[in-house]
């Protein structure tokens, strides 16, 4: 198109323009020779091409950045939704535990103490009452355990390590020897975050009891200046040989909980057992106040 225009333009140049044209050529020729031979023109060409490349790269970068930003926002939203879901679940658990413990447990304790206080006319009646008392005791123990499993009493007012220490000292598993180990407790996390940590440890512990076929297990909570490290080990059969253990609801719950705390989960499973290493960073502003 441009070439055609040029061909049309040249012959139609009026004759009086001839001297100007030749003068122009005489001027322009050495100039263009100079430009090419001195390297200015090639450099200018290369320069403009490289500027173009740089501009394109910049544009690509900006595009990638925008995409990353969008992805981050999406992930944030997802994390927020998981967090909300977990919060709702926890609130519900707390409510059910309070109902069970206060209502049923309270009534059982009242039944017990009043039953104890009755006066019986015959020995037979007293024996009946004694067996009833045993039943009440058994039931209240079950109620307490159920409430405790939902949420430990006074959670949030007591250091997490104390609650876990109690839990593992009372844990009665004939086949598996649990060992709980911790260093000095640090109040890095709020009650909500500690409840998430508690759930993670409970889930991994239940997993060991149910599936690992282990004889010994170690649970560690180690507080470092900038993070908390949770190490859960067992000497069981490993994840791959125990079908359903890796895909189980439990472990996906562990993963989403670790993610909601911004932590990292590392799973090492083999013939010598399974090791979970969980790294939870301390939120900077929280660490500054401690």
């Amino acid at each position: 198109m441009t070439e055609e225009l040029f061909m049309y333009f040249i012959p139609s140049t009026p004759a009086f323009l001839g001297p100007i044209h030749s003068y122009f050529l005489r001027l322009i020729y050495p100039l263009s020779t100079y430009l090419v031979s001195s390297g200015i023109l090639p450099i200018a060409c290369i320069g403009s091409v490289s500027v173009w490349i740089v501009v394109m790269l910049r544009r690509l970068e900006a595009y990638q950045k925008r995409q990353k930003e969008l992805l981050r926002k999406l992930q944030e939203q997802q994390a927020m939704m998981t967090n909300q879901e977990l919060d709702i679940q926890e609130a519900e658990r707390k409510r059910i535990a309070a109902d069970i413990h206060d209502e049923i447990g309270g009534n059982l304790a009242a039944i017990r103490v009043n039953l104890q206080n009755l006066h019986y006319r015959t020995k037979q009646d007293e024996q009946k009452a004694t067996s009833l008392l045993q039943l009440v005791d058994q039931t209240s123990q079950n109620v307490r355990r159920a409430a405790h499993n939902l949420i430990p009493p006074l959670f949030g007012n007591i250091p997490l390590t104390d609650i876990l220490q109690s839990y593992f000292s009372l844990l009665n598993t004939p086949d598996i020897l649990f060992h709980f180990c911790t260093n000095k407790y640090q109040p890095y996390f709020d009650a909500r975050q500690e409840l998430i940590l508690y759930r993670i440890i409970m889930e991994l512990t239940n997993n060991i009891i149910r599936h690992a076929k282990a004889s010994a297990a170690t649970i560690q909570l180690l507080y470092y200046p900038d993070h908390l490290e949770i190490v859960v080990e067992d000497d069981g059969i490993g994840l791959s040989t125990s079908p359903g253990r890796m895909q189980g609801i439990g472990l996906s719950g562990v993963k989403s909980r670790v993610r909601s705390l911004g932590g990292k989960l590392h799973v090492d499973s083999g013939i010598s057992g399974t090791t979970f290493i969980i790294h939870i960073p301390v939120i900077p502003q929280h660490a500054a106040t401690c």
Binding site: H101, G105, A109, R112, V113, Q116, N117, D137, S140, Q141, R144, P152, P153, L154, I158, D162, I163, Q165, S166, S169, L170
Partner: peptide, 27 residues
């Protein structure tokens, strides 16, 4: 209390309680 958790018993002790009884105790 109905709680038999060692850490609660410890806490009661450190808060200055003189005794701790479970609600399953007898007369």
């Amino acid at each position: 209390s109905s709680y038999n958790d060692p850490h609660l018993i410890n806490l009661a002790h450190s808060y200055g309680a003189d005794g701790y009884l479970l609600k399953t105790c007898n007369k």
